[in-house]
Amino acid sequence: MALLRVENLSVGYKSKHGLIHAVNNISFSIEKGRSLGFVGESGCGKTTLGMTLMGLLPENASILQGDIFFNDDNLAGFNDEKWRTFRGKEISMIFQAAMNALNPVIRVDEQIAEVIAIHNPQMPRTQVFDQVKKIFDLVEIPEDRLRDFPHQYSGGMKQRAIIAMALACAPKLIIADEPTTALDVIVQDQILKEIKKIQTALNTSLIFISHDIAVVADVCRDICVMYGGQIVEKGNREEVFQSPRHPYTRSLLESFLTLDSNGDIKVPEIRESPDLITITGGCSFAASCKKKCEKCENRNPGWVNLSSTHQALCFEEVIHKD
């Protein structure tokens, strides 16, 4: 059975211009020990999705429909009280802004210990700190830096401490939302290696959210590409990145600059973030799609199966048109 199963999830934000459909009818599941990457550009709904899975939606946002099954619990129906005991213990999150996630006036080891103590109130204090030491060992922060304050850490060390905090209660699922975006390439490389190593070592499940397709390809085995609040293509990383079929995935890959690319870059004609307020019938990518046909604009596309694991939200004709 899947560890996490999301079915027909929709999340909306109230705004003075109307309801913003940030996440629109999303379904996916993740098995124990797997890594699933969500990739998409700003406004695609990936961060809202992460926040929904952590029960951290802001006040003006709500789940409009759908279920989130975690083992036997349905997280979509959780109240604040239930989330408090659940969050951090079963699912934990690695945030983007490492500098702000640590309290500047409390020593780093005590911040991690606090997380453990909250979820294990009976555990004796010495045992809690033993646990902290073990976790710091895992994320490779030297033991003599344990009693430091956050400002004494470098950016990379802070991000490691954040990872340590996420690991504190041995969660079954870790959600990482752009954990390396603020970091330099060299530090990013180290942190990504760290995340991969820990994920395999502890056999936890990982949901990794990023705008950077190379980073996601590096960390995750399974990939969901998001556009306009929907998953538009999913499959394992070889399928999605080596033989992309959805027109959006294609332009995303074609316009992505790597050190190996030489002159084969195609400049896409993508308008920025689609209108998420007025949901018309029809494909959300139609306005920027090079291959669109008449029905793209007035009929909703369905899932086209490309292999047992690879699917794209598009029309059969469009996918096979070249």
């Binding site: 060299i186 990013q188 490389d189 190379a214 590096d218």
Partner: peptide, 14 residues
Amino acid sequence: KKLILAQPGFNFKN
């Protein structure tokens, strides 16, 4: 060299 090596790329070997 270090900078170039750290660049994430599409290598699926791990």
